[in-house]
Every structure is written in structure tokens, then in C-alpha cells.
Design a protein around this nucleic acid. Structure first.
Lengths: 336, 336
DNA sequence: GAAACTTGGCGAAACGTTTAGCTGGGTGTT
DNA sequence: AACACCCAGCTAAACGTTTCGCCAAGTTTC
């Protein structure tokens, strides 16, 4: 690997000048600049990241920490984030906390070691243990994504979970459903809690409430949702509609319905918040609310980069996106 | 941030000793070691990656370059790779070339700048332009994943595409299908070419060949496959079975079938190589071959890490995985 | 025409590690 | 008792950048 010194020697200038040319950090006269660029080209020189990082403190790395990389929702975020990060001139380091606080802790220590310039985080658990943050006053800029935890210094980008659930619930209620069941996510997550609350609020507004056995946790997992759905659907008093709190679980529910030989929407109406690719295209297309994942990710990165560039003492900003109801054929009028 | 010097001072030792303790690179007597560890803990010290990298030449970074991050197949790889990389003590930097050679070139220059220790690459295009590799003899260890290009120095991890197609084709042929159509991927990719060739070979072995209009490219894209499928299925001479070359396209085909009001498998049998989550669970469950993605990824990383540790002059190894035929209900006996 | 500014470019000191080479006291051998 | 060896631990020199302060030459300003 050629070094900046090699370039400087080849161009007959000092390393400072080469650096100035590369980073456009000072005016360099055209002839010199030309010689430098020629030398760079000739030697196929590329500045060594580690050295730049060491000297400047900037790493050009943005960490993305997701809670469950096997969930297509987060996979989509990786995709959007890679593009956004690249557009801002950074590189994306991806971590999967797999919903385990211990992993999250390890990951953060790694992030600190890598001196990542910023972090997009889908937090697991209910509160961050910011071992890493305070100690030096040198907190890493963070944007909380999707889920929110108790933290008054980070930006957040979320969707309005309550609204999402309400939209779906009202749609079902308007179809005449009164016995609505739900498969929730983990209730210690805002995404789990909010979607349940939204449903309850919408039902309550019409003087209704789910039956006790009709509210079950699917833990945001396909297999769990599958067996919970089987369980609910085989009850003699099964609900006429089921609200499923995320896309992965919706898949499990649809699978359970197919395996039980039930017809959707004739026998049961299904609707969800969040989706997975495919489940909205195959018949019966799922009625669901969708998140503007790409917009959310872009916004998260915009906030993060601003925080990186302008300093981390900006007041925290909270951006809430509105989910959109997308109608399929998975819900029908209640029949009795 | 505390530095190694702070730790050394606090523990009353030299930086060399601290380094020895951290990296277990030399024997340090128990009392000293203990003092050092205490100081590290006290100061919440973590070695700064960039400095280590600069000095040692190792970055602890592995790059994953995929051809299409929006394809669930590659998303799965990201997931598996993140886990594998973490287990080996590296961090994963993710790039998406989006099937564009230009992007791939840019990404490689970035990888060099970051001095990644190794690369897992799903190459786009038919041959790599190793601008980066030869110039210094300092080639970065690379494992080619899924797709193969002309390169005699890298390890490769692939599936046997021909076998995958043959398995599916023979299954369809055994069901009595003679008029088999196919939606292929890009034929300049081994994944596209091989799957077509496998189909042709299997048919030829029984004295058959697809009709001209029944072999179409879907470019590995959902939307393209959708319209191509509509086109094929509306022909008066539509095939009795359709072999689809990957999971994303299979989704598009199923969507087309649903939109056309056709029944699968009654009106048309569908089978694919590769899958996407969901399409194998919803009825009719798709008959397809599946790739052992996790095993493949683990193997790729095993090879890569070995190459990183043992030196890049190992002879190239080519590991081929055998796809497995998974039966759903999307294929039926031919009816006439 | 001398003093006071500007300005393009240079020299060299960091940044935080790793590691080769050295030191000096303790062991073991004659 | 003298010698050679070991070995734990230290000193200091890199690694490849960025950047601060400086210099010399050109441009104003009186």
C-alpha cells in the first residue's frame, strides 16, 4: 500500500499538501494539485482509514443495532440504512442483539471500541444501561429506532403504534366485528404495548372489550404466533376477527388458518400492523397497516448525521410516523 | 476516553505490560496482571480500535457485499453472517452492490480504505475487475458466495444450481408434465444460467424441450416475474408447469396466478429453486428446493477466517452445497 | 521603499497502539 | 565464586494520517 508520504515524494510536495488536496481542507494551487492527483492516481493511493481515524477521531462508521435480524422488518431497515449511510459517506456496521440485553451490552462495547461515529438502535429491554455513555461525557450520537426506551438525550424515530392499532380496529369494528381477539408482541416493548392499547382504546370507545382468552402474546415470533393462533381458533368461542401485532406473526397466523382448514375471511377476519414481503401479495391479501420503513430510516440517518456533525448536545428530537392502512381481502363483514 | 497510557500509569506499569495483559501476548505475573485488570476496570478502558488497526494492520472488520439486499435470500445471509462473524470476533460491514458493477467497484475501494480483513462477496457481473488486488500483492482474502466468476484465487461457496433445477424438473416430469415453462434469472449469472441448464438437461434426458415462448427471463425480480408470468399464463398454449428460478420471482408468479383467477395446482403447477419466508407456509405451499443458507454462510466464514489467519496463499477451495427438494402443494399431476 | 499583511506550502508533532530490543535481578551450572 | 541463562517487564520506535505553527515570497499601505 502506498502511503501519503509516497505520494508526497512522487509529487515533490509535503504530506501536508497531499492531505490538503485529498480533504480539500486548504487551497492548493492548480499545478501542485494536478501533480498530487497524478501521483495519487499513479500509485493507486487510497488514504488509510485507520490512520485517519486515529488522528481525527472520526471513523466514518455508523452502527446499526437491530433487535431481530431474522425479522423482515429489520432486514428492510438494513437495506434502507445501507443506502442512506452510503449516501452520507459512511459505512454501515450491522449488529443483531437478538432481543437479548446481554448482547446489546456486548455490542455497545464493540461499538465504542470501533469508535463508530453514530448508532441507530432498536433497543431491547426497557431501559438502556448506558455504561458506555456518561463516563467521559463523550456520548456517542444515537437515534432510537422503532422502539423507545427511557432516554432523554437521544433522537427517536417511531411510528404511532396506538394509531396503527386503532386504524385496524376501527376498520374491523366498522365491519361489524365485536368479538375481536389479538395476538400481541411483548408488552414491555412500546411496539407491543402500544398496539394492544390502541386496540383496547378503539374497542372501549364503542363500549367493547376483548374476552379474556382472546388476548394472547405471540412474542413477535412466527412459531409462537402459529401455535397461539391454533389455540385461539380451536376454542368454541373463537373470535370473529383477529388483530395480529406484526408481520411475522401474521404469517404464522395465516399458516395456522391454512393448516386448520379454515377460510379467511369467511371463517375469520385477520388484520395486522406491519407486514412481510409476500403476505400482502398472495391471496387472501392481508389487510394491515404498513410502516414507511424507508422514509423512517432516511429520517433516522438524517437526524444522526446532523447530530454527528453539529455536536451531540442538540436537544433530542422525536419524529413519529403515521402508519397507513392497506386493505386486502383478509377481512370480511361479520357473519353469524 | 482513557488510553493505554492512563491504565499503565494507574497500574504503575508500562504500556507494554498493559498491552501484554490485554492481548495475552506475553506472560505477566499474577500480581501485575491483577493490578492492570483493576486499572482497566476502574478507568473503563477499552483499547482504541483505530490505533490497534494502524499498528497491527488488522482491522477486525469483515465486509459482506451482497448483490441485492432487498432480496430475502441475501437478507438471510446478512443475518447468518452477522452471527458467524461475531462468533469469530470480527464485526460485519454490509454493502449492497444492487447488481451494479459500478457500485461494486466503489465498494471495493471503500473496503480497501477500511482495510477490512476479509470479504464475503456475491459478485455482480461476470468477472471481477480486481483493480484493487494485484497492485501490491496485498490481496484481500475473499470468499465468493452463491455466484461464481472467473477468479482462480478465491474460495467459493455455492449451491449446485444444475442439480437444484434437475431435482425440480424431474419431480415435475414424474408428475407427467411435458410442457414445462420457466422464468429464469439473468443468464450471465451462474445462478441464472445453471438453473436453466439443469432444467434443459433434465428435459432433454427425456427427449423433451421447452417451447420457445416458455423460457423467459424474470431478472430475479418480483415485478418482472409478475408481468412475465401474466404474459405466459395468458397464452393460449400456456405450459402445464412453470419452474421459477428464485424465491422472489416465485412470489411474483403466485401473485400473477392469484390476480388472473387461476388455481394452483389445478390450472398450473409451480415450483421453484430458492424461496422466501412465507411462501412455503401459505397455501398452496410452494414446492421448491431450498438452500442451506446458514450452513453455507458459516462455511464461507470458516474459509475466510482461515484464509485471514493462515495467509492468502492457500490454494482456492470450492465448496458446493446440495439443495434439498421441499414438497408443497403447488404441483399436481398434469391434467388434460 | 519599508512596514504590515496575505498566502501557498512545509516541517514536525501528535493520535493510541504494538512490538523489537534491552535491562537487570534471580537460577542453575561449573 | 564466577559465569551463562532466563525471564518479567521496560523503553522507545514505529504505524499513516491530520494539523498547528512557521516561513518565505508576494501584495498592500502609508
Amino acid at each position: 500500500m502506498a502511503t501519503i508520504r509516497d505520494v508526497a515524494r512522487a509529487a515533490g510536495v509535503s504530506t501536508a499538501t497531499v492531505s490538503a488536496v485529498i480533504n480539500e481542507t486548504a487551497y492548493v494551487s492548480p499545478p501542485l494539485r494536478k501533480r498530487v492527483l497524478a501521483a495519487i492516481d499513479e500509485l493507486n493511493y487510497a488514504p488509510m482509514h485507520a490512520a485517519q481515524n486515529l488522528k481525527s477521531g472520526r471513523s466514518g462508521l455508523v452502527a446499526l443495532v437491530v433487535a431481530d435480524l431474522s425479522n423482515p422488518f429489520f432486514a428492510k431497515i438494513v437495506c434502507a440504512a445501507e443506502a442512506a449511510v452510503a449516501a452520507w459517506g459512511y459505512s454501515l456496521v450491522v449488529f443483531n442483539s437478538d432481543e437479548k440485553p446481554d448482547n446489546e451490552r456486548r455490542i455497545f462495547s464493540r461499538i465504542r471500541t470501533l469508535s463508530c461515529d453514530g448508532v441507530v438502535l432498536s433497543p431491547v429491554g426497557s431501559s438502556l444501561r448506558w455504561d458506555q455513555r456518561d463516563l467521559e461525557g463523550a456520548a456517542i450520537p444515537i437515534v432510537l429506532f422503532g422502539r423507545v426506551v427511557d432516554d432523554d438525550r437521544s433522537d427517536t424515530v417511531t411510528i404511532d403504534n396506538i394509531s396503527a392499532a386503532k386504524q385496524v380496529a376501527n376498520y374491523l369494528l366498522d365491519l361489524g366485528h365485536q368479538r375481536i381477539g389479538t395476538i400481541t408482541g411483548p408488552l414491555h416493548l412500546t411496539t407491543g404495548r402500544g398496539r394492544l392499547d390502541g386496540l383496547l382504546q378503539a374497542m372501549q370507545a364503542r363500549g367493547l372489550a376483548p374476552q379474556p382468552g382472546h388476548v394472547r402474546s405471540g412474542e413477535f415470533r412466527e412459531d409462537v404466533a402459529y401455535s397461539v393462533a391454533r389455540d385461539i381458533l380451536e376454542r368454541p368461542d373463537r373470535p370473529s376477527a383477529l388483530y395480529v401485532a406484526n408481520g411475522v406473526m401474521a404469517l404464522g397466523v395465516m399458516r395456522a388458518i391454512a393448516d386448520l382448514g379454515l377460510k379467511c375471511p369467511e371463517d375469520i377476519s385477520i388484520a395486522s400492523t406491519d407486514t412481510i414481503p409476500g403476505i400482502g401479495g398472495l391471496k387472501p391479501r392481508l389487510t394491515r397497516t404498513e410502516h414507511p420503513v424507508t422514509d423512517m430510516t432516511n429520517e433516522a440517518l438524517r437526524l444522526l448525521v446532523e447530530r454527528i456533525r453539529r455536536g451531540n448536545d442538540l436537544p433530542p428530537r422525536n419524529v413519529v410516523f403515521e402508519p397507513a392502512l392497506v386493505l386486502g381481502e383478509s377481512c370480511g363483514p361479520v357473519n353469524r
